[in-house]
Simulated scan of single mutants.
Amino acid sequence: MILLYIIPAVDIKNGKCVQLVQGKPGTEQVIIDNPHEVAKNWEDKGAEILHVINLDGAFGENSKNREVIEKIIDTVSVPVQLGGGIRTVDDAANLLDLGVEKVILGTMAVENPELVNQLSDDYGSDSIIVALDSKNSEVVVKGWTESTGKTAPELGLSLQKHGAGGILFTNVDVEGLLSGFNMDPLLELLDAVNIPVIYSGGVTTLEDIETLSKTKTFGTVIGSALYKGRIDFETALKFQAVHSF
């Protein structure tokens, strides 16, 4: 059995930790004050990586949550991978200089892969994760509103060649629905690339995690299922590997 990282999601909106359905504003089902305390709680429970998303940045309000992100970085000692609203090289560089371990690049990477090269050259490929969000088997960008007409394996292979050190693959069709997921798109991506792939979307049960642990998936980001008690985090850690991030 190949083990994988269990990565709690800490999604930030209006300075609070939230969980949205299908990433849509106004669908908040979990709202918790003090995201830095939420992050610290996951670390105390055994998380070795934290997945932080600046939802306000993703929705176009990049100036929001800077202090919250700084407080998370100052509070925890484990690596933080962060995405949401990173639209320029300077945006990414500022976060890496702040202490974020890895930046997650979405639309920016897909539309301007040469910028991935630039950041990889400046900070090392290990600092760069590209987000490939798949809907109806095609990668979508700009908040899941526009299709690229390309598959995740196509873009994953291309961005790997441009210096990406990892991929965050989200199955938009099932994200946030707590309904399980289809393995086929993930397996196709894993066969195409040889950089770490982190999976997100629809992971709802320990059985889902066990299924992922039998693939080459590096880790899985879990949000709603943890916050709603569908998955016990400390029980899920039995599937986690102990190796360097």
Rank of each mutant, 00 (worst) to 15 (best):
Y199L: 10
S200F: 04
L82S: 14
S63V: 08
Q240L: 05
D33W: 05
G60A: 06
V141Y: 07
I104Q: 04
K228C: 12
S125C: 11
K228R: 15
A236E: 10
R230V: 05
L4Y: 06
I49E: 07
I104H: 04
L115T: 09
I69N: 02
V139S: 01
T107K: 07
L206F: 00
G46K: 07
E43K: 09
D74N: 15
S158I: 07
I53S: 00
F181E: 00
V10I: 15
G202K: 02
V174I: 10
V193M: 12
K45L: 04
S137P: 07
V172E: 15
T107C: 13
D97T: 05
S147L: 13
G166T: 06
P153Y: 02
E67L: 13
T88K: 09
E146Y: 11
G180S: 00
A241C: 14
P196S: 09
I32C: 08
I49V: 13
F245A: 11
E67I: 06
P8Q: 10
L168E: 02
V172P: 13
A39F: 02
I129F: 12
S244T: 10
T151P: 06
D191S: 11
I104C: 02
S127V: 08
I128Y: 01
T107W: 12
I86L: 14
V174W: 05
A225E: 01
Y227T: 11
K16G: 15
S125I: 08
V18Y: 01
F169Y: 13
G165F: 12
I7Y: 02
G223S: 07
F233D: 02
G60S: 06
L119S: 10
W144T: 12
T27H: 05
G83Q: 02
K135P: 10
Q160H: 03
L155H: 08
E28P: 04
V38D: 02
V52G: 00
S134E: 11
T148P: 10
D33I: 05
G23H: 12
E70T: 14
E207M: 05
T215L: 15
K16S: 11
N194Q: 05
S179F: 13
V100T: 03
L50V: 07
Y123P: 02
R87T: 12
K216V: 00
F59T: 05
V203Q: 01
L159K: 07
T217A: 15
E43Y: 04
K40Q: 06
P153R: 03
F233M: 13
I167D: 01
R230L: 08
M183W: 00
A93G: 11
I195W: 07
P8D: 14
F169I: 05
V141E: 13
P196T: 13
I32G: 01
P113K: 07
S244F: 12
D173Y: 03
H162K: 08
K214S: 15
F239R: 11
Q118P: 03
A47S: 13
